[in-house]
Write a protein that binds this DNA or RNA. Structure first.
Lengths: 215, 215
DNA sequence: TCCTCATCTTACTCCTGCGTAAGTTGGGTG
DNA sequence: CACCCAACTTACGCAGGAGTAAGATGAGGA
């Protein structure tokens, strides 16, 4: 499958912090490839070129190891999203940048996005909360922008943001799984256009349509 | 939690088909509440008011039991979606109906949608395929409509459909988890409007925007 | 050189939960 | 009424995998 990170010369001793980083990398590979449940602590240790108790000298248990990774990558996503929205004042550009951030996140770092978006441990409250919270924070960032420039209510703005984030997440994941058919920037542009058409000038058409459908 | 379906009078014998239906119902409750991994065959049996071997007289194993449910509800979703799109010739109405179908699916049948959308067994190829295939079939139905009325390429139409389905799925799930703040039809309408604004008249604005962004 | 302690290993224990062997019960039919 | 077979039960085997006890090893300082 993926290259066994760097289990160089089983028998090499490493200073504590260095070993910890390496263990996290090995764990990420295994969790991404197999999911939480099918990932064995033995395999993680083996991939790091180390025996199992070493793992337990760095992390109290399998769950904590997983949570450390989840936390880290969740933070990365939110940060990418924040940067994207702060990168410009033009809303059309903001939409593009926002989608690009999502696609970059999905395309990057050894498919780590699967930990955040496709965790098979979401039934555990701690994990569910972290995932949803990450999702919500992204939506909130977008919601703030929407609210600034429309007269829409807070609740409606929030739901729209949720919908947009869902669109980004879903299309980015789909795009990655079907790599090759469309280049990344083309996919981004296409979906961003869909989103922009959806929200831009929202206030202008709303009353007209409500009159029509309410009639 | 949820009422224990009907484990009436432990000791009641049931004809084969009737028992099978009841076992499926009990299994659904447990799988929905706990997810695949945390669901115990013992609990499913207990909830059905029956001992474990009875379960194994109806299903070869835990996996097959799960797959039977997944299959069933996947089919329901696709069918709902098909009906929605066939219910009218007006595309604006189609969008509304399509989103309504998604929200109905999520709101209905003991949260069975969690089996399709939130399975913690997606790392198993059989399950991943079924989930993705369901998703794709929904997208394909929508893609067909889009292609009929635009000059867009097949690939682009497909990606747009994926994005729209993702939007529907995500917003419906979010809406359900935060029940109470917004009534179902209001949520549907809002998201449907977003989608409709996004795709309607796509051909008309594309060349203009391409010229602008390419300049 | 020899001591020390952090790093690492082998070789277990134990628990959970799927699946099954063997035997029991009760309603319908000749 | 006696038989039969489908529906059911209790009680267990067994595997996989998390976590651990106890001991080995090697680099850096006195």
């Amino acid at each position: 499958m993926t290259a066994p990170s760097d289990a160089r010369a089983r028998g090499t001793r490493l200073p504590r912090v260095r070993r910890r980083r390496q263990l996290l990398a090995a764990a990420q590979e295994v969790f991404v490839a197999r999911g939480y449940h099918a990932a064995a602590m033995d395999e993680i240790a083996e991939r790091a070129g180390v025996s199992k108790p070493v793992l337990y000298q760095h992390f109290p248990g399998k769950l904590e190891l997983y949570l450390a990774l989840l936390e880290e990558h969740s933070e990365v996503l939110v940060e990418k999203q924040r940067e994207a929205l702060e990168s410009t004042d033009d809303n059309r550009q903001r939409v593009t940048a926002s989608f690009q951030a999502y696609f970059d996140f999905v395309a990057g770092d050894g498919e780590a996005f699967r930990l955040v978006f496709e965790s098979d441990l979401r039934n555990l409250p701690a994990v569910r909360e972290k995932s949803e919270q990450t999702f919500q924070r992204c939506a909130e960032l977008i919601g703030d922008v929407i609210r600034q420039d429309t007269s829409i209510s807070d609740e409606e703005a929030h739901l729209l943001s949720i919908a947009l984030v869902g669109m980004a997440e879903t299309s980015a994941r789909y795009w990655l799984n079907n790599h090759g058919s469309v280049p990344q920037d083309a996919a981004e542009q296409l979906v961003a256009r869909l989103a922009w058409r959806g929200i831009s000038g929202w206030d202008l058409t709303r009353s007209a349509e409500e009159a029509a459908s309410g009639d």
